[in-house]
Write a protein that binds this DNA or RNA. Structure first.
Lengths: 200, 200
DNA sequence: TCTCCGTCTGAACGTTGTTCAATCCACTAA
DNA sequence: TTAGTGGATTGAACAACGTTCAGACGGAGA
């Protein structure tokens, strides 16, 4: 009984997450409607709240999947050039990040548009996943700086990620300025090569 | 008569903008309520719509002011070191940007959190103001690259602004990681010096 | 078959932004 | 002075939102 209930709930959880993901992908975060989801899932509105704390909880479930795919996309890309020089690997990762964001703009934006302010605790898997991503970035940097000061690698990791993130963010946002893709790649490559070059 | 009406409307416009600005500054964009503003302004809810198209219109009015102050803050900062080397001027501007964002986090965030998607047209002054800011950045870059390829300066301008913006954004956001201010300044300075150094 | 208890339901609640019929008011013409 | 007029202002009403909870429901044990 208890088991049966649990299973049904998990099934509903998955169904709702699927549906929500489809909506976010197609029309963005703001298009999520509790009633629409319930209708599509064939359940009551209240059922959503048996399975998620909140609409925010549902969004976090979607973001969890997106985060996983993003991480995999970047990992896979860098795995293909595992024996390339560190800087090139960083460029490959950054371009992979751009690719993912560009291919899934709404899902990607949703990662950063959830309001974390009211939520007391950022989910632990969120930080874990972010940590994993940062670790991937940190590795080539560590190779470039074999004898770093304490915290230096971590700081450079954040700085580089933030920079690339900023470029992708503003590049994809302003469809009015519409920076072409190859230009964005050029910007990223230029930036990373400059920043990571070791002093003679 | 017509004049009188116009004056009253302008006065209401200003009052509402003042109130909205105070709310955004204190509690963020999401805390704006049409009814609250009307009560505080001593007018009817409907009156807001005599003066603004939309709540979004009101937010844009607030953002207009913020944009102006941001521009002035950056301009003033760079004016004080007008005869410093280009790279140093870029650093000063970026730090000024960080200062402003850090001192007015909610107003600053509001600049980017307005949904431009449904709005057909981004207001022209928005693009103007952005253009002005970009022009300030472009000047030191032009000095560094006296013989640029077409569009190169513009692209570097965007890249640098986006990067600094990304660093400020993620640095201020994650109060969990809480990158200290001096560290952020260090990151920005490091980045800009590396990126802008001319090849030997 | 009859309880009983946990599960699920969906009408109802409180808040949103936005609208528009009704009211008001300043001014003119008789 | 008063009746008429037309634009400006009002605020109750509307539609849509996320969220809740009293009650309907249904399977397991006596």
């Amino acid at each position: 009984m208890a088991r049966d209930t649990t299973k049904r709930r998990e099934a509903l959880r998955d169904t709702l997450t699927d549906l929500a993901e489809a909506h976010v992908r197609a029309d963005g975060l703001a298009s999520l409607r509790a009633r629409t989801l319930a209708r599509e899932a064939g359940c009551a509105v209240g059922a959503i709240y048996n399975v998620f704390d909140d609409m925010t909880g549902l969004i976090l479930a979607v973001n969890g999947r997106t985060f996983g795919r993003l991480g995999k996309h970047v990992s896979d890309a860098v795995a293909k050039v595992a024996d390339a020089p560190p800087t090139e690997r960083l460029v490959v990762m950054a371009i992979a990040y751009l690719e993912f964001a560009s291919a899934n703009p709404n899902l990607w934006r949703a990662l950063f548009d959830v309001e974390m302010s009211t939520d007391r605790d950022v989910p632990e898997w969120y930080m874990q996943e972010l940590g994993r991503l940062f670790a991937i970035i940190a590795q080539p940097l560590a190779e470039l700086h074999p004898d770093p000061e304490p915290g230096e690698i971590d700081l450079m990791t954040r700085a580089l990620f933030s920079s690339v993130h900023g470029i992708v963010l503003l590049g994809l946002e302003n469809r009015i300025s519409a920076v072409p893709r190859e230009r964005m790649e050029g910007m990223i490559e230029f930036l990373l090569k400059r920043v990571t070059q070791t002093d003679a």
